[in-house]
Computed example of a mutant assay.
Amino acid sequence: MSSRTELPVVSDLNVVSLLETLVSLNTENPPGRELEAARFLAGVLESLGCEVTLDEFEPGRANVIATYVNGPGPTFAFNTHIDVVPAGADWEYDPFVARIADDRLYARGACDAKGPLAAMVMAVADLIASRDRWSGTLMAIFVADEEVGSAGAKHFAAITEQAIDYVVVGEPTSNQPVIAHKGSLRPIVRIHGKSAHSGTPDLGINALYEAAKLVGLVERTHRQVKCHHHHLVGNASLTITRLNGGHADNVVPDRCDLMLDRRMVPGESEAQVRSDIQAMLDLAANEFGLHTEIVEWKATTGGASETEQSHPVVAATVEAARRVAANGEVNIGGFQGGCDLVHFRKLGANGVVIGPGSLAVAHQPEEFVPLAELESAVGLYRDIVLGLLKRAAV
């Protein structure tokens, strides 16, 4: 294992103080910087009695894989991410110093997803302390790069030989269960033209004008795409999020790049969506004579995913969530965005997304997690495991 961070390992674990330490470790992505926080987490989990691997799969980027074997039974994994989005501007206070006010903890990553991360570590501590109540294998898989391309989760899925039966993914859901999420693909489409002096534009083919023809076709295609509907996550979509063309003030541009953002719903396959995008470009060639190519597929979190509502992991999560809900009401929902659940589903694990905090304040200045939700998430996570890894009667 790599050397640990110089930060002291927490000896008297407390979810609030643990979160205060985690948000102080800058893991903005880009560029990443997860290694220091990963070393800290590895030390905490080792001190609890877990067998820990610190997997630095790229320089400065690491996953933490902790395992605690407690007799025969299924394997349950906690998963969330170590990275956070860039803090940005408009913060009233330092975004990497936790501030507690109005029964909330404010900081970058407070809810997305270091609040769930801290609660999961505390749940591991509780479960090890009460190991006579359950039987099986408990894992904590905390990964890098979820906010950009899920490199950490993809790497773990590619190398793991451990069968995982159940997974709970920590994301801000106000401690309500989420069983489905959208996926995304982001191709960069290059439209080719022909350069010429801007004083004699008719001698060239302006790639920006050519791109405008494709823009209209993308809009038409979106109207077809959004007919793909899922009852928990809504409609699929296709839109343009970036446009880049031209290299000089007096030159007709010979190329223009568009970034497409295709959001998929459960039931859509990545292979079919890629084929559909290429079919749209083929249509552009036939209708408008456009010369296009896909020059890159940008890294994304991945495809769409869904766990059957009837699965035991959903039932255990609903039961645990009901115990911590203020009014006992639980609503099963879906994510408009993506997360790492899809990569565990590809491994054969069934899972749920749940955690303290709200997506409405994630990625925003003055991000926060309510302290009541943070503290109740510890028992929520613990009780999900106890509901699934019941010790057989002797």
Rank of each mutant, 00 (worst) to 15 (best):
S2R: 14
S3T: 14
L7T: 09
S11V: 13
S11Q: 15
N14R: 13
N14Q: 13
T21L: 01
E28S: 14
E36L: 11
A37H: 01
A42Y: 01
T53S: 14
A62Q: 04
N63E: 06
Y68I: 09
G88V: 12
A89L: 11
W91N: 08
W91Y: 05
W91H: 08
R104P: 02
C111W: 00
C111N: 10
I128N: 12
S130C: 07
F142S: 12
A144N: 01
A144D: 00
A153H: 12
I159S: 09
E161S: 15
E161A: 15
Q162Y: 01
T173E: 02
N175K: 08
I179A: 05
G183K: 04
R186K: 15
I188Q: 11
R190V: 13
A207P: 02
A207C: 04
L208R: 08
V215G: 03
V225F: 03
L243Y: 10
A248T: 10
D249G: 15
N250M: 09
L260N: 06
D261H: 04
D261G: 07
R263T: 00
M264S: 12
M264Q: 08
E270Y: 00
A279I: 05
M280N: 04
Q309C: 10
A315Y: 02
V318T: 11
A326N: 07
E329P: 05
I332D: 01
G338R: 05
G338D: 04
R345Y: 02
L347S: 03
I354R: 12
P356C: 14
G357Y: 01
V369D: 02
D383I: 12
K390D: 02
R391D: 06
A392W: 02
